[in-house]
């Protein structure tokens, strides 16, 4: 195992095949592995044991933060710093503040969802060891790949390769970092 190995990549043909392969890799006791698919595979989260994504929470906090800060801004600007009488309306009232704050809550939550997604996925990441693999480019088309990372405690070039072969992986290759 060279210092620069990133992992071993194996290729599968159908969503059901990759799902079965993932189950077997999991059952073999590997912990640092991932599958690469052209679209999300129904049931894969369960197999990989992925917990509920925190993106929703990021969105909630960003949205809530935006809501409160706009309420604060409205209070500060329209009721505290420069109160102006407009249309006989109170300087600060719940119905009036609701609309802009609510709109900004949506913006905040949307930006939060995007930023959360990018941050948890460590994107943008223009350079990636997998991009060196020719077969990997087919993942976005119709192939389904499984990668066992070299950082996995159970990782061994020969054993892992054997396992991947036994579960039907094709075009098995070692990815260099």
């Amino acid at each position: 195992m060279s210092e620069k190995t990133y992992g071993i990549l194996a290729e599968f043909d159908s969503p059901a095949a990759i799902l079965r392969a993932a189950e077997k890799v999991r059952d073999a006791g590997y912990s640092r592995w991932d599958v690469f698919t052209p679209f999300p595979i129904h049931g894969m989260d369960k197999v990989m044991g992925l917990k509920n994504s925190l993106v929703g929470w990021v969105a909630l906090f960003m949205g809530g933060g935006a809501f409160l800060s706009v309420v604060g801004l409205i209070w500060f600007s329209n009721a505290f710093d420069y109160p102006l009488i407009v249309g006989g309306k109170p300087m600060f009232s719940v119905p009036m503040t609701f609309v802009p704050s609510y709109i900004m809550m949506i913006l905040g939550a949307a930006v939060g969802a995007l930023i959360g997604m990018l941050a948890f996925n460590e994107l943008p990441r223009f350079h990636h060891p997998l991009f060196t693999s020719e077969r990997f480019a087919l993942v976005s088309r119709d192939k389904f790949c499984l990668l066992v990372g070299s950082t996995d405690p159970k990782f061994s070039e020969t054993e892992t390769r054997k396992l991947l072969e036994s579960i039907g992986g094709a075009h098995i290759e070692i990815i260099e970092d």
């Binding site: 992925l50 929703g56 969802a113 990018l118």
Partner: peptide, 28 residues
């Protein structure tokens, strides 16, 4: 490459992506 931002289509990426997508759909 620039636009795809290094998307690999890994299950973890899809996992967060789908969640963000649902949230954005709700917000939209």
């Amino acid at each position: 490459s620039l636009l795809a931002m290094g998307w690999t289509g890994s299950a973890r990426q899809w996992h967060h992506y789908e969640k963000a997508y649902v949230v954005l759909c709700g917000l939209c």
